[in-house]
């Protein structure tokens, strides 16, 4: 149902179908919106799938875009990597209009990707997917020592943190001193 398009491809809006007279209610054509991440790849997603994201759902409701306007103005999520946004879009499509299952085993197993996904999902306010991701994070650290957790997620110790900060400050100081000296040389 979803398609990935580069730039602004011309996806024709769905034509309303003529409902047979016997039908109880006329079928409303599904509307589509467009989103892109850091890589500018535009994803066409149905409004139904986007309902999972409280953020996008709120934006759609407030804007009241027509199909053409939506196509011309994809929602930009510059803080989300393209592959992560693809994962989010796929998840929203897979779970469109369905009750979410208690478990989701299709989440990324690589820790870096999982954390990127957590941040994206948190930003887009996709409650159910955030819950799955958080559960996976919890499972990955279950029974681990603080040292092991630090190793998994590359967390510095307080001492390392302090030392690294000092080092960064020292470097910044040196760079600033170098720039001042260069500026003084130019002035002469």
């Amino acid at each position: 149902m979803s398609s990935t398009e580069q730039g602004t491809s011309s996806a024709a809006p769905a034509e309303p179908t003529t409902a047979p007279e016997s039908a109880a209610a006329p079928e409303v054509p599904e509307s589509f919106y467009y989103v892109h991440g850091k890589d500018k790849v535009v994803h066409k997603v149905s409004a139904g799938a986007l309902q999972h994201s409280a953020l996008i759902h709120g934006m759609i409701s407030n804007l009241g875009y027509t199909e053409e306007q939506a196509k011309a103005n994809p929602f930009p999520f510059e803080n989300i990597d393209g592959d992560i946004l693809q994962m989010v879009v796929d998840w929203c499509n897979q779970h469109k209009g369905k009750p979410t299952p208690p478990e989701d085993t299709n989440l990324p197993k690589q820790k870096e990707k999982l954390f990127d996904l957590v941040l994206a999902v948190n930003y887009l306010e996709i409650k159910e997917l955030l819950t799955y991701c958080c559960k996976q994070v919890a499972m990955m650290v279950k029974g681990k020592s603080p040292e092991e957790i630090r190793e998994i997620w590359m967390i510095p110790t307080d001492a390392e943190d302090e030392a690294a900060e000092k080092e960064a400050k020292k470097r910044a100081g040196k760079e600033a001193a170098g720039e001042t000296a260069a500026a003084a040389g130019d002035a002469k």
Binding site: K142, S145, P146, T157, D161
Partner: peptide
């Protein structure tokens, strides 16, 4: 696990 998390960093 909560205790382990606490001990990772400030």
């Amino acid at each position: 696990d909560i205790h382990s998390f606490r001990k990772t960093c400030h």
